[in-house]
Design a protein around this nucleic acid. Structure first.
Lengths: 341, 341
DNA sequence: ACTATTTGTGATAGCGCTGTCAACTTTTAT
DNA sequence: ATAAAAGTTGACAGCGCTATCACAAATAGT
């Protein structure tokens, strides 16, 4: 029988009950249970005993409303479909938990309108801070953030103007770095294969950077192919197959929007008897472990996603403690020369 | 300059300010902004206009404290290191958001003590419901759950006695099903290769079921190898290598604790020139897309993780609406005969 | 010894909102 | 027209906690 279905009182024990049993005033009980405040040792022990006896669980809604700090941090991410943002979230959670904070989560699905609604919703909980990996902010989103009286970190990229703080790296620079690397390896005919990029503007930034990097050497990107739908191994497999089928002239190297896509291509090549990198060079982005465990480890750019999450949470926590963390923290990417390019 | 650092008032607009501007009482403004309550059309319009003008953001802490329902759901998962629980979380979030709920997240890292602490923390926020994928609950955890006056769903497996509700499938049965399948394929010499199983009791349940399934046909598991550390593609690669090196007699088929490990084995076989399944059959668990995209799709058991999350959230929401969802919802696994066994 | 601190505790007043009950106004039924 | 029902609004109290100020008791200073 579920007690939440019957309408009897049966409320949870309150601080005032704890105080009564301990024989002190409410406020003293409050101080005793929060560490930091001055309370006589014996009193604190009595209050703690009473709390234990009652199975007292403090009500943070009341505590926060009455003036305490919130200890919740709003987190808005665009997706949980691949491991990338799960990694970020993992890092965030780890650092937040260290200081007793908890993330309230929202997933925007790369939809600015949804992001705005989520922000509105999360703000209602008066969180202590906010972490977002913004898609493409609406005006309202920007204005809500501007009016929000709390530390805010934008994670993943540091290419755009920052509201309060940012943690990540430049995706544009990352794309450029890969262009330079591949050119350095001697390749001259390039293709790009990505997933639906209209929503994922960080992937777009990498493509831009890649183009720019090539242009600096006087090379042009011969083909850009965008697949419909979210990125996946299968999509990469299908994509490379189509690309090779349709291409009038086979590219020497292909840069993918991410590792998932690139791994799919590796699988296709294995099946089709195409040697990497000799027949075709492949490069991904993210540095997923799956790519590194391949018989031919994937050439890619590793992003320290968990560390980004960790640093973002750390910036929030620091600021809440009154410190002044850097406004922009760079957690840089690392080019991983594998065996596929 | 961050306004949260200066001590000036600058509080957010409150309902009472909205009410004053709209020329109504506080409670009428409250009713106007929540839909459902009876308020004259014109009045509602006036209040909404005032709220917009002030950029009013309701304070749900106050609202919930005063008697409203919480609209936060506590979620405790054991890990975010692989895509499995990220998928569950994705499903959870999607369903919760449909009804305006938001997950507050905690990661237990398969540590019962940590799980208990997280539960304690989340309970302080007086969530409307609770979702957990329990590791190994402590007595205190069980007692906290018993006293918690809200819908609770345990997700992933339905093998154990349930506190309130459960959504998932039997991992024991899944292991058994794979045993039957592999025996049916004609294999008779079996090995199991897993990651550190002491903490992951669902993997342990699959192993038990696998053993039992074999025993039913009169076959024994010839070798069980447990690798240290969390599961990963690399760990599977190293594991299969070691297993084959040390084995006095090569097994005909290997069952892995999950797809990550199995994919690692596939990679090792590719590199070592071992044909799957003829030289060695491999079977995983989870049905990750990466396994299905392999040149030789992995034989595995697909778990509908996102659907589990979705159904779990749905059960919570239903119960909060006064409905009575089934206490145990089975979201069954599906054996996926691939090309590796 | 007597004041100046420090330490420990409490009374009071909210935080911003919603439940409850009561009151008033308009509509509908007879 | 008049009672009953429906529609609309407000006064009040209180959710469970903490900030603030005030005061008593214990300790230190000279």
């Amino acid at each position: 029988m579920d007690s939440h279905e019957n309408d009897k009182p049966a409320r949870r024990p309150t601080l005032s009950q704890v105080a009564r049993i301990a024989g002190v005033s409410e406020i003293t009980a409050s101080r005793a249970l929060r560490n930091g405040s001055v309370v006589a040792k014996a009193t604190r022990a009595r209050v703690e005993k009473a709390a234990r006896a009652l199975n007292y669980v403090p009500n943070r809604l009341a505590g926060t409303l009455a003036g305490g700090a919130s200890r919740q941090v709003g987190v808005i991410l665009p997706s949980l479909s691949n491991i990338v943002f799960a990694d970020v979230l993992k890092g965030l959670e780890a650092r937040l938990e260290d200081d007793g904070y908890h993330p309230i989560l929202g997933i925007s699905h790369y939809d600015p309108k949804r992001e705005e609604q989520l922000l509105r919703d999360l703000l209602m909980w008066r969180p202590a801070g906010l972490v977002l990996a913004p898609a493409q902010m609406t005006e309202a989103t920007r204005s809500l953030l501007g009016a929000a009286d709390m530390p805010i970190v934008e994670v993943m990229d540091i290419d755009r103007p920052v509201t309060d703080m940012a943690v990540g790296f430049s995706h544009h620079t990352a794309g450029r770095a890969m262009a330079h690397f591949l050119v350095g390896r001697g390749y001259r005919k390039f293709a790009y294969l990505g997933h639906d990029i209209s929503t994922d503007f960080r992937a777009l930034a990498r493509l831009d950077g890649f183009r720019e990097g090539l242009a600096e050497i006087g090379v042009a990107l011969s083909e850009t192919r965008i697949m419909q739908g979210p990125s996946s191994v299968l999509l990469g497999k299908q994509g490379i197959e189509a690309l090779l089928r349709d291409a009038s002239e086979r590219p020497e190297a292909v840069f993918f929007s991410n590792d998932d896509m690139a791994v799919g291509a590796v699988f296709h090549c294995q099946g089709a008897g195409i040697a990497n990198p000799d027949d075709l060079a492949l490069a991904g982005f993210n540095g997923l472990s799956i790519g590194q465990a391949l018989p031919t480890p994937l050439t890619t750019i590793a992003s320290n996603r968990e560390e980004i999450g960790f640093a973002a949470a750390d910036s929030i926590v620091q600021k809440l403690r009154g410190l002044a963390p850097q406004s922009v923290r760079r957690i840089d990417f690392r080019l991983v020369p594998g065996a596929t390019a």
